[in-house]
Amino acid sequence: MSKLPNSSPRYQASRRRFLRTVGLFVGVLGASLATFLPVIAKWVPARLRPPGAIDEPEFLASCIKCGQCVQVCPVEAIRLADIDEAMGIGVPYIDARAQACDFSCDAVQCILACPTGSLNHTIVKKEEVRMGLARVASPDKCLATQGLGFKGQARGADFQGLLRYTEIDRWNPIPVRDHPYDLALCDLCVRECPIDNAISLQPIDTEGKRKMPVINEACVGCGVCEMICPVEPTVIVIDERKMWGEGTA
Rank of each mutant, 00 (worst) to 15 (best):
209 K>I: 02
45 P>I: 01
110 C>G: 05
84 D>A: 14
17 R>F: 03
47 R>F: 04
168 I>E: 11
26 V>Y: 06
190 V>Q: 13
249 A>S: 05
167 E>L: 06
97 R>Q: 14
214 V>N: 01
29 L>I: 13
109 Q>P: 07
65 K>I: 12
166 T>W: 11
132 G>L: 01
238 I>N: 07
51 P>H: 02
59 F>V: 02
89 I>F: 06
131 M>P: 05
96 A>H: 12
129 V>H: 03
53 A>L: 04
121 H>L: 01
14 S>C: 06
120 N>A: 14
162 L>I: 11
193 C>S: 10
12 Q>R: 15
235 V>N: 09
23 G>S: 04
226 E>M: 08
91 V>I: 15
111 I>K: 04
61 A>T: 10
221 G>H: 10
115 P>T: 04
54 I>N: 00
169 D>H: 06
144 A>R: 00
216 N>T: 07
6 N>F: 13
20 R>I: 07
13 A>K: 12
129 V>S: 03
181 Y>Q: 14
103 F>R: 05
105 C>T: 08
47 R>Y: 03
43 W>T: 10
89 I>Q: 11
23 G>D: 07
96 A>T: 10
37 L>D: 03
147 G>S: 11
189 C>S: 09
181 Y>A: 07
4 L>M: 11
224 V>C: 07
170 R>A: 14
54 I>R: 01
103 F>E: 03
203 P>R: 13
151 K>F: 06
